[in-house]
Design a protein around this nucleic acid. Structure first.
Lengths: 149, 149
DNA sequence: ACTGAAACTACCCCGGG
DNA sequence: CCCGGGGTAGTTTCAGT
């Protein structure tokens, strides 16, 4: 994981469909050399894969919310994950410090769908209370940004 | 935006570096036909682009937090965005309903870096108060999930 | 269907341990 | 002597028209 790897990662974050030759030109390496590095980055887990960025609204998922989840008793993170994983509206979930046990990022088609998803979330056995915050607009959303290159 | 488009999008979300021929085989279409559809999906904004999924920890960004931002007076979303955009630690930001004006997702190298980013966030003129919640672990993180295919 | 380009493999070269 | 990393060439597949 040297400087060249960082620049390769930056390039792929900017456009995952860049050709190896194109990346190589930017980092002064041959295409096969770039491929070898990319393969290694995938093996070591620095790169997890390549994905398309979709516009949620265009797919009819225009409503989102962040939900603080409070649990009863001591619950292991893994058990929370197991219960959240089946809910398709759960985009992301984190255990957190503070009063809440977890923060869940929900994405739904509309308010009614969101309400429905919230009900199913509250129906999860260990959940004692939820505090939801509806997203009005997305100001910013960007990749982790390792370094410009 | 028909069923075939949805399956193409699913495929690209799963692996943005799939070849058109590969996708075509999955959806029973020729490679050029798939390309035409992908180009159209990009033009219409359903697809925003293609990116690499990086492991933040592997890049030395192991600490994250969600921050409720409270502003003084009435501030337009666009002005908030303008002030947050220069902060590299801001991964995402949303205007929200409820007491807070915005939720900001921060990613930093460690607790000290996070504290530093928080200070810079609080230094933004219109910010009157922040409530931060540190992420202990990531339970789940997945694409918007249009449909399995 | 055709043309140019890209991916992939194999093979060779160099420098450091 | 071996190992890690890079370059070059030839073949196959893919992208773009």
């Amino acid at each position: 994981m040297d400087v060249i790897d960082q620049r390769i990662v930056s390039r792929l974050v900017a456009d995952a469909r860049s050709s190896y030759a194109e990346i190589g030109k930017a980092v002064s390496l041959s295409a096969p050399a770039v491929k070898r590095r990319v393969d290694r980055l995938l093996e070591t887990g620095v790169l997890r894969g390549f994905t398309a960025v979709v516009n949620p609204e265009a797919l009819g998922w225009g409503t989102e919310a962040f939900v603080e989840v409070h649990c009863q008793g001591n619950v292991s993170p893994d058990r929370i994950r197991q219960r959240l994983e089946p809910l398709p509206e759960v985009v992301a979930a984190y255990t957190v410090s503070g009063a809440a046990d977890a923060i869940v990022h929900l994405r739904a088609a509309d308010i009614h769908h969101l309400e429905d998803a919230l009900e199913r979330l509250r129906a999860v056995d260990m959940v004692s209370r939820t505090v939801s915050t509806v997203v009005l607009s997305t100001l910013l959303e960007r990749p982790p940004a390792p370094e410009p290159g």
